[in-house]
Design a protein around this nucleic acid. Structure first.
Lengths: 139, 139
DNA sequence: CAGTATCCTTAGAGATACTG
DNA sequence: CAGTATCTCTAAGGATACTG
């Protein structure tokens, strides 16, 4: 009924790729290297709202260091997900915005985040159950 | 035309959550902690094909160490995505399979992987362009 | 077979100070 | 403002050897 069966068939393709080309090009690893780090997805979500300056992004995500903010933005730019626009003012103004490639990521990302949001309570419950099971009542 | 606008609206919700509850429960971080590690998604894909034994998984993903294989499976089990079934044989037989919660992740995951697969060439091209741009022809 | 236990090496990332 | 440059620390993860 769902498209899960489709998913499985596609997965088997990728599995084959994975085994044939020894970890060469693997879509899974690739997507995870892209957005699986600590900040990329957060940044993309932030930029989904519209273009933002460096310091705006920093204010939006306060617990990132400037070092990591710069690096994440560079990586996203390098991969064509984000574009960087420098305006020759004093002091400098730099705006970041999602490139079309980055925009195209919004839908799949939203699907994932919705999953997380809907299933969070189940995951949490499972975790409590698991952690409670082994030791159990000691005293 | 696409549902990207929807995505953006949902994102703004999560953004608010993020800023209000100081990094407390954030769906983005949550999903990334779940499947953003090196092996979880690969494992889920492998288990999507059907239940598998420990050594089958190891053969399917040869470049994972037993240490990480065990740990990843434990984490997935802990979160209710995977179930573990021990059969009292000698030597022991242990089967892993996706729990319903794990199955429910297949569709959003497939969307993401399809994105990676379709956009890989664009990403690669952008990367080559970026890496070639700054230094450019030196000699 | 299905793991533990241990050791060891790196990459990820924070903190801080400086610059055009 | 928008970054670089260091310096440091931690934890993710590999390698290897052992066990019920």
């Amino acid at each position: 009924m769902s498209t899960a069966q489709n998913a499985i068939e596609r997965f088997s393709q990728y599995q084959r790729e994975l085994r044939d080309a020894q970890s060469a090009h693997c879509a899974v690893r690739d997507v995870l290297d892209r957005i699986g780090d600590k900040w990329s997805m957060l940044m993309i979500m932030e930029l989904a709202m519209g273009s933002q300056r460096f310091s705006e992004l920093h204010r939006a995500i306060p617990d990132i260091s400037k070092r990591m903010l710069t690096q994440t933005l560079r990586d996203l730019e390098r991969d064509g997900l984000v574009t960087r626009h420098v305006f020759p003012t004093r002091p400098p103004t730099v705006e970041y915005r999602l490139a079309p490639l980055g925009q195209s990521l919004l839908d799949p990302m939203a699907a994932l985040i919705d999953w997380a949001d809907r299933r969070y309570s189940e995951i949490h419950a499972a975790r409590v159950r698991f952690d409670g099971a082994p030791g159990d009542v000691p005293s």
